[in-house]
Design a binder for these strands. Structure first.
Length: 568
RNA sequence: GGCCGGUUGGUGAAAUGGUUAACACAUCGCCCUCUCAAGGCGACAUUCACGGGUUCAAAUCCCGUACCGGUCACCA
């Protein structure tokens, strides 16, 4: 790569000597790109080298403000910011709004909000539509027009860029022609019609009012190979780029390729972490860096999250898949931590094992590029659910309460009111079989909490119309006897259970399950059936967490009321 | 079509030349248990897309084929 850089410099030297009789390249550049306030050199001087500790890397997340953040964007930004944080470096947010047609109002705010929901914040960059922090800005590309043009001008002055007057129809024709003869598609070689027109002709066309764009005069040869080292994929070999790609569009704004060069160089970004759809334009990017004599950044291309769809596997699509939007997880009440843990699991396969041993400080995990999978991972909602379930099980009741409260405030007003009215009670309910060595894992997301514990609220319990099938051993007399003569709120768990066992013989039940199993015909049921009966009467469910705890929280009076209302 | 990348069980994947191909999710079975959820124990790829080669030895290296994905815009 150094060698080719050297060749380009020699080329510059020769070209710089070249003078048209008509006008100098410098004058030409001024006509092509008028109203540029600074030179490339002046801009370069404005962006100082960063003073960062050894090994610190500078990353960036560079989304287009075209709507909500995609799970892939979350994935990329999380990884980029994590790497920067872990090396004591910088992660910046740059807004790529050079496609004015696709730009959406409030797009920037939306991106920032979505990412902030997941605690992804940036050391530098846009913080709103109008404000930004950091000394390497502006961080919104539409505000950098002058800079890109200064760099393009430099290329024109060195005969490495030129105006192209081709119309859309002409472009279209070339394309179909290439398709017909099965040639490579694009503007290169003999298809680059305006590559070598004289300055005179160009000026003439401009004077006639013809519109033009600025194309790169690619010095590449398709027959040659470039070797690029990708941090996650290793050594990659591509044909050299020989496409005269567009640098500056008709609206004066740069294309992605050119903006990438200018911005990432000026902003001193060391690591380009992006999705692998960029892999194939890598030859363009390194050629641009080499042409300017800039050090190439390290590239790390991430494989996309995919989805199985009607037999085929495809990238998660922003348009088609509801789970592609990060707001989906927010609405489902999946904890942001679970989403992040899932991302880490997919990013580095050795994370999961490490996480098991380091749950409390999992964010300390050291990500590494070479452990990043090179094949696209199928997005696994089951796995995410499991992570979510596990994560919620480790939360303290009061924290869970806070999260569920804010979730329901947004999505379930009825439940929110109940949680507010019965705050301490609710925390106690959530604390059943929690904050112990093996906590329950039956809550898969915040949205499921109401469903799990609704019977603990009279307001919801009364509305529960589920009817269970009557079973032979259901016995109201037993229940009445139990609540009036046996149940004591002050009993400890063992005593509570022993008392249930004690009433078994009185009603024809076996006090030991084993005893019942051996001779079921001798009994109406066993102690477990009595528990089931109490459970159904009091909660209208056959499955609940610890009955003892539930009864205790409900209190004797409410149990009594519920038993009285229980229809057998 | 050109170029590039990928291919290990239902899923995510580990192992990168050397015993029975980790681990996790899912599924199933048993145990424990007042019911669930957990938890414990166990089952689950004779085989790493296919074909050939190199080697004493290949999921791992090489070649070819197939399939999947990406890209080929004045979109990013």
């Amino acid at each position: 790569m150094r060698l080719s850089g050297g060749i380009y410099s020699v080329l510059f030297y020769i070209i710089k000597q070249e003078r048209s009789d008509y006008m100098t390249l410098k004058e030409y550049a001024n006509i092509l790109l008028p109203n540029v306030s600074h030179t490339k050199e002046e801009y370069e001087a404005m962006y100082k080298d960063r003073k960062l500790p050894d090994g610190a890397i500078v990353t960036r997340f560079a989304p287009s403000p075209t709507g909500f953040v995609h799970i892939g964007g979350l994935f990329t930004s999380f990884i980029a910011s994590t790497f920067a944080r872990q090396t004591g470096g910088v992660c910046l947010l740059r807004i790529e709004d050079t496609d004015t047609k696709r730009t959406v109002t409030n797009g920037i705010e939306e991106i920032i909000r979505d990412l902030k929901d997941y605690d992804i914040t940036f050391d530098e960059g846009a913080i709103s539509e109008t404000e930004e922090i950091g000394e390497y800005g502006p961080y919104i590309q539409s505000k950098r027009k002058d800079i890109y043009q200064a760099f393009a001008k430099y290329l024109i002055e060195n005969n490495l860029a030129y105006p192209c007057f081709m119309t859309e129809e002409e472009l279209e024709n070339i394309r179909t022609k290439q398709e017909n003869v099965k040639a490579r598609i694009g503007i290169y070689g003999k298809f680059a019609k305006f590559r070598d027109i004289g300055i005179e002709e160009a000026i003439e066309r401009i004077n006639k009012g013809e519109k033009y764009i600025i194309r790169f005069k690619s010095p590449g040869n398709f027959e040659n190979k470039v070797i690029i080292n990708d941090a996650v994929r290793g050594k990659l070999a591509f044909p050299e780029n020989d496409l005269d790609i567009v640098l500056i569009k008709k609206d004066g704004l740069p294309t992605y390729h050119f903006a990438h060069l200018v911005d990432d160089h000026l902003m001193k970004v060391t690591h380009i972490i992006r999705s692998d759809e960029w892999l194939s334009s890598l030859p363009i990017h390194v050629q641009l860096f080499d042409t300017f004599g800039y050090t190439r950044p390290t590239y790390a291309h991430l494989s996309p999250l995919t989805k199985k769809d009607e037999g085929g596997i495809r990238k998660l699509s922003k348009r088609k898949d509801k789970e592609a939007a990060v707001s989906y997880y927010h609405e489902a009440g999946i904890p942001k931590e679970a989403v992040k843990i899932y991302i880490m699991t997919t990013a580095n396969s050795n994370f999961e094992e490490w996480y098991e041993k380091n749950k409390e400080h999992w964010t300390d995990f050291k990500l590494s590029f070479d452990k990043v999978s090179t094949s696209g991972s199928l997005f696994d909602l089951d796995k995410l659910t499991n992570i979510s379930r596990n994560y919620i099980s480790t939360m303290k009741a009061s924290d869970l309460y806070t999260e569920v409260l804010s979730y329901s405030q947004e999505f379930d007003k009825e439940f929110y009111d109940l949680l507010t009215t019965y705050k301490n009670y609710s925390i106690n309910v959530l604390n059943i079989e929690r904050e112990i060595e093996r906590p329950r894992k039956d809550i898969e997301n915040y949205g499921a909490v109401k469903r799990e514990i609704s019977y603990m609220y009279d307001e919801l319990f009364e509305k529960d119309t589920t009817q269970y099938e009557h079973k032979d051993f259901y016995n109201k007399e037993l229940l009445t006897y139990y609540i009036n003569n046996v149940y004591d709120e002050n009993d400890d768990k063992q005593t509570w259970f022993n008392k249930i066992k004690e009433i078994c013989p009185r009603f024809g039940f076996a006090s030991e399950t084993k005893e019942y199993k051996q001779n079921p015909e001798n009994f109406k049921g066993s102690v477990s059936h009595i528990c089931e009966l109490i459970r159904v009467a009091v909660t209208n469910r056959t499955q609940t967490p610890d009955l003892y705890e539930i009864l205790k929280l409900l209190g004797k009076e409410r149990i009594k009321t519920r038993i009285e209302k229980f229809n057998i």
